[in-house]
Design a protein around this nucleic acid. Structure first.
Length: 826
RNA sequence: GCCAGAGUGUCGGAAUUGGCAGACGAGCGCGACUCAAAAUCGUGUGCCGUGAGGCGUGUGGGUUCGAGUCCCACCUCUGGCACCA
C-alpha cells in the first residue's frame, strides 16, 4: 500500500531487507560482461561509523550503482582492518579481551553500515584478525622470506614509548608517532624488515603509468621515495689505512671541496680523532648530539655546528689535504654518512664554512654568478661552466658530472650510484593484537620459517597485558614453546606480530576469492577482477597504505600470483568532513553522529546531503540546515511522484515523441538535458554535487509543469521516471519505493541507466545576448537555425543596441552562434 | 625556504573549450493557506543608486571585441616537502 507521507524509516528498512533476501548485490565472475571493481578503504572497527566513513562509502556506492546501471559486472565488497592497538588499549582499560572487543565492534559497525543501504556483497566480507585471513598474511611473509625480501637485522629503530612498540619510518610524522603523536625515541633492536627498497625504482617508475591517480599523491610518493643520482667515491685519510667514502650528487664540484664532514655517529669518528688534541672536543660534541632528537637535528631552523677532528683526507683529483670535520647536519642513515663539502655551491656547506671561516672556492661559473668565494652572499647552485678544476675547466657542469664519475671509476675509487630516501619497511611490532610472524628460532638450526602446512600460527587467547617493551606474547609459554620444524628439538617462536599495514596490503585481492582455504586467492579470480578500477579513501594514506599495497602487488606479480602490477587503476582521495571549520573531534565537541542523522532524516537524506555539499576531493563543511534542505528535496520528489502516480501508471511511452505542445517540448528538453548532465558529471568528473543540482532542476521543472491544465502524460511519465533513475545511485531507498509505485516489478538497481535523446535537445529558438562593447544590453529570442548575417541585422536593428551605440561608428561585429552578438563601436 | 592547490554573494558552492558571473541548495524578506504556528505553495534576494545607470570573482597591471577563466607581479589561506649531500 502506498503511504501518503514520506516515511523514510519504513521504506529504508523494507528495501534493505529486500535487497539482502534477494541477494541483489551478490557478484560473481561473468565473462560476458565488462567487470568493474569499486573499492572503498576498509575501516578499522572502532565501534562506530563517523561522517568520514559515511562520505567515503556514499561516494563508492554512487560509483558502484551507476556502473551497474551502465551494464558492468560489479564487485563492491566491504570488510574490516581489525588488528591493531586500540583493541589492546580497550582490553587494558575495560578488561575485555581484544578479540571480543573487536568482534563486537565489527557487528555494530556492520549494523550501522547496513542502515546506509550500500550495495555491498557481504558474502565477501573479510576481517584481517580472523585466522582464515591472517593465515595468508603469514603466507605472504613466508613468500617474501623465500624471496629474500623479509629479513631480520639489528638497527636503530623508531620506538614509541606510549604505544610500546617500534614503528616504520612512514609511521613517524615530524618525529612523532603517527597514531598517538608521542615523540619517538631511537632504540637499537633486532627487527624484521621487508625489503621494499628493492622495488624503489619500480615504485617510482610505475607512477608514470597511473594517470588515474591524483598528481598530489604521486608527488608525495615521489618525494618519499626520494631518488637521487650521483657518485660514491673513496678518499684516503692522511697517515692511515682506512678510507672514507662519500656520496655526492655534484661530482662536478669536487675541485671546490674545502672540507669533509662525517656524521657524529660515523664509525670513523673515534678512530681518526683518537690521540689528537681535538679528541676531547670531538667526544663532547658526539655525546651532546646523542641527546638531540632527530626532529630538532634535521630541522632547517637548527643552526649548523661541528668540530674539526684533527684528521685530513686527500682529494683524489688534486691531492689536496682536506680537513675532516664532524657536524650536526650530516646524517648517518643517508648515503654513506659522510660528505664532501663544497661551500661555494651548496647552501648548507656555505653557511657552515662562513661560520667556521673555512675557505670558499668557486668551481662552477654561471652567467652572473660571482667568480670569487669572498664575494659570495650565498652559495651558487645553478648551472655553469667548470673553473679552477684543472683539465676539466670549461666543461659544462653536466658533462663534468659524467666525466669525473667516469674518471673515478677508471682509477677504481668510485662509481655512479643512485640513492633513495626510502628505507626498508620495519614490520615487527611488540604487540599482541596482530598477525604472529611465522618464524621459529632453534638453537641448532637458527631462525626458520614455519612450514606452510602449519599455518596459521594462531594467536592465543587470554593473554596478560603488562606494559613493557616486549611483546605480551613473550609471557605466553604455550605460544612460544614449540619444536624445530627441522630437527624436532624444542624451539621458540617469534613473539612479535606484524604491522597492521601488512594485513591491508593485500586485502583487495582477497575480496576476489574470500573463501579460498588453500591459497590467499586463486589466480583466475584475480585475473577477472583485478585491478581495482576505482579506489576511494582518505588522503592520509597517500604514502603509507598506498605505497605498501603497491609494493605487495608488484611482489605478487613477480611470483606469478597476480597478473597486474599496480593494484588501483583510479584513485579518488576524498576531503575531510568539517564542522565549524575544523575536523570533527571529541575534544572539540563538534562531532555529528551518523547514527543520529540517519535516525532523524534517513540514510537517503544523509547520503544526498554529503554528496551535494561539496565535490568529493574537497573538504566538506557540515551543515544541519543543508541536511534539512536535502530532506525537503526528497519530500518534494515523494510528493511529485505519489501525486502524479495515478495519472501516469498505465501510460505507455511511445517510440517517438512527435507533435508536442511547447510546454511538453520544454519538459522533454529539460529531462534529456538532465540525463546528459548527470551522466557526464558522474562518469567523467565525479562531480556529484552538480549532478544532484541537475536532478533538483529537473524536479523543479516537473513541479511547475504538472500544475498546468493540459498535461502530456507520456512526457510527464518520461520525466518522472528519468528523475527517479538519475537519483537512484544517490538515494536508493526512496527511488526503489517510488519506482515500484510507478508500476515496475524490477529493482531500480537493475535498470539500465537512461540515455539522452539528442533530438530532444534541439531547440527551435534560442536566447541571444546582445552586447555593445562586451556589455549585455538586451536579450532576444531567435530561431536556432538563424544565419550569422541575420543575427547581425537583428543586433544592429535592436533599440537598446542603437541607444548605446548612438553617435558612434560600428567597427566590428562578433557573432558567437547560439550565444551572443557583440557590437564593437568607436 | 621549495613545490602543489585554492581565493567568487550572508553561507556551502556553480560557471566543462576565452562568450550572458552567482546554477543548485541554505539563509533572509514578502505573499498565500491557517484562529495561530509548523509544514507546504508562490515570489524576491551580489553591491551602490529613487531612477537611468554604475560597480563587481584576493590586489595591481597586461593581452583580447570580450577575462572568474590566459600572461606578469604581489598578498592571503590550505596541503605536501624541508639540512637527504
Amino acid at each position: 500500500m502506498m503511504e501518503k507521507n514520506y516515511q523514510f524509516d519504513l521504506i529504508e528498512e523494507k528495501w534493505q531487507k529486500h535487497w539482502e533476501e534477494n541477494n541483489i548485490f551478490k557478484s560473481c565472475e561473468n565473462a560476458d560482461l565488462p567487470k568493474y571493481y569499486t573499492l572503498e578503504m576498509f575501516p578499522y572497527p572502532s565501534g562506530n561509523l563517523h561522517m568520514g566513513h559515511v562520505r567515503n562509502y556514499a561516494i563508492g556506492d554512487v560509483v558502484a550503482r551507476f556502473k551497474k546501471m551502465r551494464g558492468f559486472n560489479i564487485l563492491h565488497p566491504m570488510g574490516f582492518d581489525s588488528f591493531g592497538l586500540p583493541a589492546e588499549n580497550a582490553a587494558i582499560k575495560h578488561g575485555v579481551p581484544p578479540a571480543e572487543w573487536t568482534y563486537a565492534n565489527i557487528e555494530n559497525m556492520k549494523k550501522q553500515l547496513k542502515t546506509m543501504g550500500i550495495s555491498y556483497d557481504w558474502d565477501r566480507e573479510v576481517a584481517t584478525c580472523k585466522p582464515d585471513y591472517y593465515k595468508f598474511t603469514q603466507w605472504m611473509f613466508l613468500k617474501l622470506y623465500e624471496n629474500d625480501l623479509a629479513y631480520k637485522k639489528s638497527a636503530a629503530v623508531n620506538w614509541c614509548p606510549s604505544c610500546q612498540t617500534v614503528l616504520a619510518n612512514e609511521q613517524v610524522v615530524d618525529g612523532a608517532c603517527e597514531r598517538c603523536e608521542t615523540v619517538v625515541e631511537k632504540k637499537k633492536l633486532s627487527q624484521w624488515f621487508f625489503k621494499i627498497t628493492d622495488y624503489a625504482q619500480r615504485l617510482l617508475d610505475n607512477l608514470e603509468v597511473l594517470p588515474g591517480w591524483p598528481e598530489k599523491v604521486k608527488t608525495m610518493q615521489r618525494n618519499w621515495i626520494g631518488r637521487s643520482e650521483g657518485c660514491e667515491f673513496d678518499l684516503a685519510i692522511e697517515g692511515r689505512e682506512e678510507k672514507m667514502t662519500v656520496f655526492t650528487t655534484r661530482p662536478d664540484t669536487v675541485f671546490g671541496v674545502t672540507y669533509m664532514v662525517l656524521s657524529p655517529e660515523h664509525p670513523l669518528v673515534d678512530v681518526i680523532s683518537a690521540g689528537t688534541e681535538h679528541e676531547a672536543a670531538v667526544k663532547e660534541f658526539v655525546h651532546r648530539m646523542q641527546f638531540i632528537s632527530d626532529v630538532t637535528r634535521t630541522s632547517t631552523d637548527t643552526e649548523k655546528e661541528g668540530v674539526f677532528t684533527g684528521a685530513y683526507a686527500i682529494n683524489p683529483m688534486n691531492n689536496e689535504k682536506i680537513p675532516i670535520w664532524i657536524a650536526n647536519y650530516v646524517l648517518m642513515d643517508y648515503g654513506t654518512g659522510a660528505i664532501m663539502a663544497v661551500p661555494a655551491h651548496d647552501e648548507r656547506d656555505f653557511d657552515f664554512a662562513r661560520k667556521y671561516n673555512i675557505p670558499i672556492r668557486v668551481v662552477i661559473k654561471g652567467e652572473d654568478s660571482p667568480a670569487e668565494g669572498d664575494q659570495m652572499k650565498e652559495a651558487y647552485t645553478g648551472p655553469g661552466k667548470m673553473v679552477n678544476s684543472g683539465d676539466y675547466d670549461g666543461l659544462a657542469y653536466e658533462d663534468g658530472k659524467k666525466k669525473i664519475t667516469a674518471y673515478m671509476e677508471s682509477i677504481g675509487i668510485g662509481k655512479g650510484t643512485i640513492n633513495f630516501r626510502l628505507r626498508d619497511w620495519l614490520i615487527s611490532r611488540q604487540r599482541y593484537w596482530g598477525a604472529p610472524i611465522p618464524i621459529i628460532y632453534c638453537d641448532d638450526c637458527g631462525p626458520l620459517p614455519v612450514p606452510e602446512k602449519d599455518l596459521p600460527v594462531l594467536l592465543p587467547e587470554n593473554v596478560a597485558f603488562k606494559p613493557s617493551g616486549e611483546s605480551p606474547l613473550t609471557y605466553v609459554q604455550s605460544f612460544y614453546e614449540t619444536v624445530c620444524p627441522c630437527c624436532g628439538k624444542p624451539a621458540r617462536r617469534e613473539t612479535d606480530t606484524m604491522d597492521t599495514f601488512v594485513c591491508s596490503s593485500w586485502y583487495f585481492a582477497r575480496y576476489c576469492d574470500p573463501h579460498n582455504t588453500e591459497l590467499p586467492f586463486a589466480k583466475d579470480k584475480t585475473d577477472y577482477w583485478m585491478a581495482v578500477d576505482q579506489y576511494i579513501g582518505g588522503v592520509e594514506h597517500a604514502i603509507l597504505h598506498l605505497m605498501y599495497a603497491r609494493f605487495f602487488t608488484m611482489f605478487l606479480h613477480d611470483i606469478k600470483m597476480l597478473s597486474v602490477e599496480e593494484p588501483f587503476t583510479n584513485l579518488l582521495t576524498q576531503g575531510m568532513v568539517l564542522k565549524d571549520g575544523s575536523k570533527m573531534s571529541k575534544t572539540k565537541g563538534n562531532v555529528v553522529s551518523p547514527e543520529e542523522i540517519i535516525k532523524t532524516y534517513g540514510a537517503d537524506t544523509a547520503r544526498l546531503f554529503i554528496l551535494f555539499a561539496a565535490p568529493p576531493e574537497r573538504d566538506l563543511e557540515w551543515s544541519d540546515q543543508g541536511v534539512e534542505g536535502s530532506y525537503r528535496f526528497l519530500n518534494r520528489v515523494w510528493r511529485i511522484v505519489t501525486e502524479c502516480m495515478e495519472m501516469i501508471q498505465d501510460v505507455n511511452l511511445p517510440e517517438t515523441f512527435a507533435e508536442l505542445d511547447p510546454e511538453a517540448r520544454e519538459l522533454r528538453y529539460r529531462t534529456h538535458a538532465a540525463i546528459k548532465k548527470v551522466t557526464e558529471d558522474i562518469e567523467e568528473r565525479f562531480n556529484f554535487n552538480t549532478a544532484i543540482s541537475a536532478i533538483m532542476e529537473l524536479s523543479n521543472s516537473i513541479n511547475s509543469y504538472r500544475n498546468q491544465e493540459e498535461l502530456d502524460l507520456p512526457v510527464l511519465k518520461e520525466a518522472i521516471e528519468a528523475m527517479l533513475l538519475l537519483l537512484s545511485p544517490f538515494s536508493p531507498h526512496i527511488t526503489e519505493e517510488l519506482w515500484q509505485y510507478c508500476g515496475h516489478q524490477d529493482s531500480v538497481y537493475s535498470q539500465s541507466w537512461p540515455k539522452w535523446d539528442e533530438s530532444a535537445l534541439v531547440k527551435d529558438e534560442v536566447e541571444i545576448a546582445l552586447q555593445v562593447l562586451g556589455k549585455v544590453r538586451d536579450r532576444v529570442m531567435v530561431p536556432s537555425e538563424i544565419s550569422n548575417e541575420e543575427l547581425e541585422k537583428i543586433a544592429l536593428a535592436n533599440e537598446r543596441v542603437q541607444e548605446f551605440s548612438q553617435g558612434k561608428q560600428v567597427v566590428k561585429l562578433i557573432v558567437v552562434p547560439g550565444k551572443l552578438v557583440n557590437v564593437v563601436v568607436k
